[in-house]
Design a protein around this nucleic acid. Structure first.
Length: 304
DNA sequence: AAGTTGCACAACCGCACGGGT
DNA sequence: AACCCGTGCGGTTGTGCAACT
């Protein structure tokens, strides 16, 4: 028995989304929240496949997505992570909270792959992918990652326990970061959608308990900062991460608490913050580009 | 100015997985 | 256990646009 197609292929519109369609979709999600995508086309009247709606939301309309040029640091992270994880774009995207897996994949395919092919940089960036030491390294790193995932789940569970969750229970996997440093092309022509979303973030039932502090730039409200800090402390106490606070302070300006929490909720397999701080440590330490193994081992010792 | 080429990115497609029944 | 559904993921394709001839 074959599965039912996600939508009736007849009469389904394809191709680029129009601003009107975007507005319809955003309006619907404002009222009902994301999810139950199968019902979206029928309830909105959109002549789109449910998957198309979900993808449109996830890759374009969802708040918190940064568009435009990748920074040098982002580029470095992608290169390292690709070397580590392979083409697991969703996993890579979990380390770059404001980028979608699709964006990263596109950027890799159009920019970085050529760049690396040009100068054989897979080894230059620290991962001689054919070497046996690399395989050992990667195995160790992945084992540690698995452990971290387990810990992250536990920490998240602790952080969301009634004692601490009074301010968090209403958080849903959304990002409230709507700023777009350089809205490109179509995005800039749909500022109304952004405004709509912004208004929604203030009013929607899944918002943070106190979003009045939500600013135009998507900066982090104090109260939410506190929650982030509580969670950070939970992680810190568990992982013994001295650098977590500073890492968070590095990340937070461009990453709302909802963004960060959504990382844990939508991608609970990764402790994004702590992994990020770990990664940052070796990604941006030029002197350690060739010493991942050492770092991995050191960090393992550090953690356990 | 018109045609061609290459690039960037949005969107689609098919498969896989997990949860519910 | 088998099936259905919703969703996630990675590979690929399509489209618009700018640069070039």
């Amino acid at each position: 028995m074959g599965r039912q197609p996600c939508c009736d292929k007849v009469g389904v519109k394809k191709g680029p989304w129009t601003p009107e369609e975007d507005l319809i979709l955003v309006s619907y999600i404002q009222q009902h929240g994301p999810g139950n995508w199968r019902a979206v086309p029928t309830k909105t009247g959109l002549l789109r496949c449910s998957k198309s709606c979900r993808l449109r939301w996830a890759n374009y309309l969802r708040p918190g997505i940064r568009r435009g040029n990748f920074t040098e640091n982002e580029e470095k992270m992608i290169i390292h992570l690709q070397a580590l994880l392979g083409n697991r774009w969703a996993a890579i995207a979990s380390y770059l909270p404001e980028r979608t897996d699709n964006d990263i994949k596109n950027y890799w395919n159009t920019h970085l792959k050529k760049k690396l092919q040009g100068n054989e940089s897979s080894s230059r960036y620290g991962f001689p992918s054919s070497s046996s030491s690399y395989q050992i390294c990667r195995g160790q790193w992945e084992r540690k990652l698995q452990t971290d995932i387990h810990m992250a789940k536990k920490d998240l569970s602790d952080a969301l326990s009634p004692e601490k969750s009074s301010d968090l229970v209403e958080m849903k996997p959304f990002n409230n970061h709507t700023s777009s440093p350089k809205p490109s092309g179509y995005a800039s022509s749909t500022e109304n959608i952004a405004k709509l979303l912004k208004g929604w973030m203030r009013n929607n039932p899944w918002k943070m308990a106190d979003s009045a502090d939500y600013s135009e730039e998507g900066t982090v409200p104090m109260k939410e900062d506190k929650n982030s800090k509580e969670m950070a402390e939970a992680f810190q106490s568990h992982l013994g991460f001295e650098s977590l606070d500073s890492s968070l302070s590095d990340i937070s300006p461009s990453m709302s608490p909802e963004t960060s929490l959504s990382q844990y909720e939508s991608k609970p397999h990764l402790n994004a913050q702590s992994q990020l701080s770990l990664l940052e440590k070796w990604l941006f330490d030029e002197g350690k580009d060739y010493q991942l193994c050492d770092i991995t081992l050191d960090q393992n010792l550090y953690f356990f």
